[in-house]
Simulated scan of single mutants.
Amino acid sequence: MPRSRVNGNFIDKTSSIVANILLRIISTTSGEKKAFTYYRDGAI
Results as ranks from 00 to 15, higher is better:
residue 1 M to E: 06
residue 2 P to I: 03
residue 2 P to G: 03
residue 3 R to D: 03
residue 3 R to N: 07
residue 3 R to K: 12
residue 4 S to L: 05
residue 5 R to P: 00
residue 5 R to A: 06
residue 5 R to E: 06
residue 6 V to H: 07
residue 7 N to Q: 08
residue 7 N to G: 11
residue 8 G to C: 03
residue 8 G to Y: 08
residue 8 G to L: 09
residue 9 N to Q: 13
residue 9 N to G: 04
residue 10 F to A: 15
residue 10 F to E: 11
residue 11 I to V: 15
residue 11 I to F: 13
residue 11 I to L: 14
residue 11 I to S: 07
residue 12 D to E: 09
residue 12 D to Q: 10
residue 12 D to L: 08
residue 13 K to V: 02
residue 14 T to E: 06
residue 14 T to F: 14
residue 15 S to Q: 10
residue 15 S to C: 07
residue 16 S to A: 11
residue 16 S to E: 04
residue 17 I to C: 07
residue 18 V to Q: 02
residue 18 V to C: 03
residue 19 A to F: 04
residue 19 A to I: 01
residue 20 N to G: 15
residue 22 L to D: 02
residue 22 L to M: 13
residue 22 L to F: 09
residue 22 L to I: 05
residue 22 L to C: 07
residue 23 L to N: 14
residue 24 R to P: 00
residue 24 R to W: 05
residue 24 R to M: 04
residue 25 I to F: 11
residue 25 I to N: 06
residue 26 I to N: 00
residue 26 I to W: 00
residue 27 S to P: 08
residue 27 S to M: 08
residue 27 S to N: 12
residue 28 T to R: 05
residue 28 T to H: 00
residue 29 T to K: 12
residue 29 T to Y: 01
residue 30 S to A: 15
residue 30 S to D: 15
residue 31 G to E: 12
residue 32 E to I: 14
residue 34 K to S: 13
residue 34 K to Y: 05
residue 34 K to T: 06
residue 36 F to H: 00
residue 37 T to L: 09
residue 37 T to G: 02
residue 37 T to S: 08
residue 37 T to A: 03
residue 38 Y to E: 15
residue 38 Y to P: 01
residue 39 Y to V: 04
residue 40 R to G: 00
residue 40 R to P: 00
residue 40 R to N: 04
residue 40 R to T: 03
residue 40 R to K: 14
residue 41 D to K: 15
residue 42 G to F: 08
residue 42 G to T: 04
residue 43 A to N: 11
residue 43 A to S: 10
residue 44 I to Y: 04
residue 44 I to R: 15
